[in-house]
Write a protein that binds this DNA or RNA. Sequence first.
DNA 1: AGAAGATACATCGCCTGTCAAGGTATCTCG
DNA 2: CGAGATACCTTGACAGGCGATGTATCTTCT
Lengths: 106, 106
Amino acid sequence: MSIASDLIRGHTETIILSHLLDRDSYGYQTNKSIQEKTGGRYELKEATLYGAFRRLEQNGCIKSYWGDEETGARRRYYSITGLGRAVYEENKREWQDAKELIDTLI
Amino acid sequence: MSIASDLIRGHTETIILSHLLDRDSYGYQTNKSIQEKTGGRYELKEATLYGAFRRLEQNGCIKSYWGDEETGARRRYYSITGLGRAVYEENKREWQDAKELIDTLI
DNA sequence: AGAAGATACATCGCCTGTCAAGGTATCTCG
DNA sequence: CGAGATACCTTGACAGGCGATGTATCTTCT
């Protein structure tokens, strides 16, 4: 992980929501997907990841359920809610603004 | 201030360094300049601003001196050091990377 | 003269997100 | 059987942002 976490801070939840847009997923897979998409340049720490899932579920952006694996470790799947999609869109807009703002300032 | 502070977190010091590249400045002016550049969309809170100045001075990125105003409130001026310029360049590079990374992920 | 508002600096204590460290349990492969 | 991957979770410390509050000076309006 070569990138300062303070630069990503505030995007963690949006990144997770983004990953859930197309399909339900579980924690471990979410993180693996992030690693793949970034070519190993970034990964979420587990404590950060599960903390974000907890917050997202608490404010209604995602719902969770246990997978019915016959074998292997149990998995808690998450699915994005309507609210979650709205929040995602809003966050994405905010990111576009923030990007522009920061580019103006640095 | 229409932008979430977690999206700016980690950029505060870089923004300040950027403002000091061309000329020495003081806290109040720095913040006014940020407000102008962003058309009032963003400003640093004073506690954030002075906290950042303190950190930057402690790790040698800036130096400070009192202005010799004959009139008006006293001003503490800051000037960027060689180290500060190097840190600025590095932070700017990191921002380019982070931007790309986040765009990939959200 | 007095009040209000801008200029200018500074600190304290709270809140929140990140993360190192630790823990549990299952499966696979040598 | 041991090592390593898969998969989940929590606790405590830390750091940055910020509301609140305080100081002092200058200008402007009444």
